[in-house]
Design a protein around this nucleic acid. Sequence first.
DNA 1: AAGTGGTCTAGACCACCAT
DNA 2: TGGTGGTCTAGACCACTTC
Lengths: 250, 250
Amino acid sequence: MADETKTPRAKPEYRRLADELRGNIESGLYAEGRKMPTEAALRQEHGVSRHTVREALQQLLQDGLIYRVQGSGTYVSGRQDRSKRYLRSIGSLDELIVWPETRIEVLQPFTTKVAPSIAARLELDYIEVSCAVLRRWFEDEPFVLTRHYVAPELGRTLAEQGIPSTSEGTVIGEAEPHLRHPVAGARQDITAMNAPVDEAALIGCEPGDAILLVERLYYDTAGHFVELTESHFNPRHYAYRMELRRRSGS
Amino acid sequence: MADETKTPRAKPEYRRLADELRGNIESGLYAEGRKMPTEAALRQEHGVSRHTVREALQQLLQDGLIYRVQGSGTYVSGRQDRSKRYLRSIGSLDELIVWPETRIEVLQPFTTKVAPSIAARLELDYIEVSCAVLRRWFEDEPFVLTRHYVAPELGRTLAEQGIPSTSEGTVIGEAEPHLRHPVAGARQDITAMNAPVDEAALIGCEPGDAILLVERLYYDTAGHFVELTESHFNPRHYAYRMELRRRSGS
DNA sequence: AAGTGGTCTAGACCACCAT
DNA sequence: TGGTGGTCTAGACCACTTC
């Protein structure tokens, strides 16, 4: 219909189709637990090949929005829970880069300091890193304290630019435009620890309470590490939710 | 080459290829951070179409084992940390169903008891559930205590069958053959709590120490809940590791 | 210019589910 | 038996990286 094809970087068709179907699920046009259109129907309706349709459905499958049964059809997964608001469901890095409905407070802007062990983990050639400390609020409660570590050069750039406290973004989102290569992914480790005395009050718990520790190491497409973050969550206000899906079954 | 095609349920070629490549990465044949064979090379070497090669690579991409750069090539993600051995990297449900190198100890076999809140979470029509308590060891250390909750009927079947303590399997793996519909997925919540007095010793920590709490709710393809598990991990011996990837980039 | 991965088409055969 | 999704082939054009 529209002149989408003229744009220099047109979104691939399968992604457009995926977005449309996603919208239809979220709007309730395709009801939970019920059947989706078949591949043949989608192919005809959109005038694309079966492969393109399957690529689009593959995206929804990865998101856990649908499941497929051979010989039967494609179904909407349902069970979209929206009860606990700041319980996050994170399936890909993209969902991490924005964090709606939360507010950032800068406890310490990016400052260069000597920290050999952190520098080594970022695989820097020297022993200095730039560190910032942020706290995130949801409504009227603080629920996470995060230390961000980046290379000193990047830290200086970010310090000049400042971190928009009203922003819904994240530090890695702010940093990305300044990088040589785009961010490709992150490795995340989740574990637990007892709240340190000097931190407990900052996230609304008592010293010694169990808190959730999430560490992320971001890397770019060239394989270089970009940022290391260490987040301490108050578990009363935050749980890490994820959907595990089957690979073989469908 | 071989007569693989004769078997009634032959594994699809792209999955065989994926397994082979996975093995080559784990064995170090494809070194970390370096290039993998190109699609053309793999196509020629294995005598399959490009599409099949791409499907295999897609699997590794989903596992975070590789990343791909248009115009440049396919690279091994590397950074596989083997220091903490029972630090798991879980990308799909299938990786949960077996757990190699660990031993199960049954602290309490499946027993029916009244537990209205659990029954409600499994969406049962009554207030009884069947519960078993298991402990898992790695080498000479216990590191996780898990409570398994299933419908009483399924619990009785599993009690008769027994849980093979030498098994590398999991309870859900044992249960699946007895289900009407295959397991489609699970919703997992991760949070932290202080170790209860009566449990601390069982997983090798002190009362009050922070432990990792992982709750999983398994459901089948018909949308019915099958099992609820509540695991308490000693964080000194276990961390939850996951790879977050970008959807748009590659 | 050559090589690589990203997208897309047109077709085929099969296993499985519904009827 | 007909329709559905699962697997696979052969080919095409493009965007991007590398040289």
